[in-house]
Simulated scan of single mutants.
Amino acid sequence: MTEAAFWDKIAEKYASDPIENLEGYHKTRDMIVDRLKPEHRVLELGCGTGSTALEIAKHVQDYLATDLSPKMIEIANAKRDAETPEHLRFAVADGAGLPDFSPDVVLALNLIHLVPNADAMIQKIFDRLPQGGLFIAKTACLRDGPWYLAVMIPLMRLIGKAPHVSIFSQVELTDRLQKAGFVIDETLLQKGTAPRLFTIARKP
């Protein structure tokens, strides 16, 4: 099963499931908005069903939200209403490849650990951003969680119950960002079975 097919298969359930840590979601959403400017062009990779894009697109000039799952994008477009900014667009695209778009800010929320070659994606994002551009991510750092996750997830993938998941720690993630050339401006660790590190990185 391809990655796109996996996410298409679970899209309806994904859309109906409540946000696991609503307080944490609101906290990081507000941190993102605080860093946005009205003239910014934002590229969101792995937007899922568009919940974050629909909330924050009004704060910027242009917003392109992409996901590799056509079904996720179909659901995102169905959420549009009269208050949705016209400049918010949803599109099917592989986040690892990056669409033809020149952003000031790139968002990858709950995505880096799902990309087979995270280092290549991070480097492409760095190269695409202008000087002073921001890369804002929230990433599961499974090596910092219970030991059994590293065993269970590959087994679930074998039977089609999980997508590709990379196993790394907070320290390893930060090293990857810095190796690509980013400067880390802010971090916030959200604890849980799968700890998630929220990072705001800048291209110097």
Rank of each mutant, 00 (worst) to 15 (best):
74 E>P: 00
146 P>V: 06
103 P>N: 11
122 I>Q: 00
138 K>Q: 08
132 G>T: 06
141 C>G: 09
112 I>H: 02
84 T>Q: 06
67 D>C: 09
82 A>Y: 03
162 A>C: 09
105 V>Q: 06
98 L>M: 09
182 F>E: 02
89 R>C: 03
93 A>Q: 13
120 A>F: 01
112 I>W: 00
83 E>V: 09
155 L>C: 06
172 E>L: 05
117 N>C: 01
106 V>M: 00
107 L>C: 11
71 K>S: 01
133 G>C: 07
71 K>Q: 11
177 L>S: 08
132 G>S: 02
84 T>D: 10
101 F>I: 00
80 R>M: 05
99 P>R: 12
68 L>S: 04
97 G>N: 14
166 S>A: 15
115 V>N: 10
169 S>L: 05
165 V>N: 06
115 V>K: 01
141 C>I: 11
160 G>Q: 04
143 R>C: 00
152 M>E: 13
80 R>K: 15
172 E>Y: 00
103 P>K: 09
168 F>L: 08
158 L>E: 09
80 R>H: 07
152 M>D: 02
121 M>H: 01
133 G>F: 12
117 N>S: 14
177 L>R: 07
154 P>R: 01
93 A>F: 15
160 G>S: 02
80 R>L: 07
132 G>A: 03
102 S>Y: 13
95 G>P: 10
132 G>H: 09
153 I>M: 13
162 A>K: 08
85 P>C: 09
169 S>A: 02
110 N>M: 09
173 L>S: 01
142 L>F: 14
158 L>W: 08
173 L>G: 02
167 I>N: 14
88 L>N: 02
148 Y>R: 07
137 A>G: 04
100 D>L: 13
151 V>T: 03
130 P>Y: 08
168 F>M: 00
139 T>E: 05
115 V>L: 10
89 R>K: 15
76 A>Y: 04
146 P>C: 01
103 P>E: 14
147 W>F: 10
105 V>I: 15
176 R>S: 12
182 F>W: 06
123 Q>D: 14
98 L>W: 12
86 E>M: 12
111 L>G: 03
155 L>G: 02
175 D>H: 11
85 P>I: 10
158 L>D: 07
155 L>R: 12
127 D>L: 12
159 I>H: 03
178 Q>E: 15
180 A>P: 00
107 L>W: 13
171 V>A: 09
130 P>D: 05
181 G>L: 09
126 F>G: 00
125 I>D: 04
144 D>R: 06
90 F>T: 06
170 Q>G: 15
167 I>Y: 09
82 A>T: 12
137 A>V: 13
159 I>D: 03
118 A>R: 07
103 P>W: 13
95 G>H: 08
77 N>S: 12
130 P>H: 12
84 T>R: 05
165 V>A: 11
93 A>R: 06
112 I>S: 03
97 G>M: 14
114 L>Y: 06
67 D>Y: 07
101 F>L: 03
105 V>T: 08
169 S>V: 06
122 I>D: 05
118 A>G: 11
